[in-house]
Design a protein around this nucleic acid. Structure first.
Lengths: 146, 146
DNA sequence: TTGACATACTACATGCTGTAGTATATACTG
DNA sequence: CAGTATATACTACAGCATGTAGTATGTCAA
């Protein structure tokens, strides 16, 4: 059971492949679609797209459970696997861990890059950010008074 | 020669060890202190702290050059190594690449986390961020008019 | 010419991920 | 009850990144 979700983050990959391996990701996608599943369910799903061995799927699902990303409970003569986090929560965890990692080390530089990149990607978000900050400021002031 | 500086980012490590291996990091620190160096210079420096082979240092410096983090120029019967980026610029690159990676994939979630984490780490930075945003907004407006 | 020093090349360990075979237990089906 | 399908556990190997270092070989200077 690992402490963190984003042990290693690869910025230049896409989607959850930033923190998961290719196959790990495929498996998680299936799990998130179905809520829970046994190995065979996932195997059948992946088999539709490509050649893969049952044991391959099993091995990786076991690893995902060891990492604390899947939960593994006995069911009949096998195991039922279930995502520990919803996809949404998982993404939030990642974003939080990564941002914490970068802000904690390079606060100033990170703040600057953040604004720049956000403007490049989606200028409209600046407005949203601006509102968030105003709220945050009020909160901080409130905290000061206490 | 690689395209990116932050191929893999480990949020829960410290300093440049987030994107560099332990030894790679030690070597870069020496290089940034001295501007440039040959393998022996770095070797002598590291040797002061721990047992290490000359060729170990050489191998890793070669790898750093392949990654495009060190520049390698012939000098006499050997090579002179020099950081491609100043430490400061390197850190900026990392922060930019990582933030781009996270914002590009989870814009909304990232914006939210960002404010939260920044408040936790250093609430004073919120003020700075706020100013930056106001400036950015003006810039955007100016751009619109053109 | 010899010794110090330089590089190139090779190699192995460890950890992560993808991949899958083998052995073994179990359960359903006829 | 026997046989087949299915489940897991265990083992193993390949490829990549990183740390580590040995060996072979070239070169320069005293």
């Amino acid at each position: 059971m690992q402490e963190f979700v984003a042990t290693s983050f690869k910025p230049h990959r896409n989607g959850l492949n930033q923190v998961l391996g290719e196959l790990e990701q495929e498996i998680m996608e299936v799990l998130w679609k179905r809520e829970d599943a046994i190995v065979r369910d996932v195997f059948i799903e992946l088999k539709k797209k490509r050649k893969i061995a049952y044991t391959t799927v099993m091995t990786v699902m076991g690893r995902l459970a060891n990492k604390g990303i899947l939960q593994k409970t006995p069911k009949k003569n096998s195991y039922l696997y279930k995502p520990v986090y919803s996809k949404n929560d998982f993404e939030k965890c990642i974003s939080r861990e990564v941002i914490k990692g970068i802000l904690g080390n390079y606060t100033q530089a990170a703040v600057t890059s953040f604004i720049d990149v956000l403007t490049e990607i989606d200028p409209k978000q600046i407005e949203y950010l601006s509102n968030l900050i105003e709220e945050k400021k009020k909160e901080i002031k409130k905290g000061d008074r206490r």
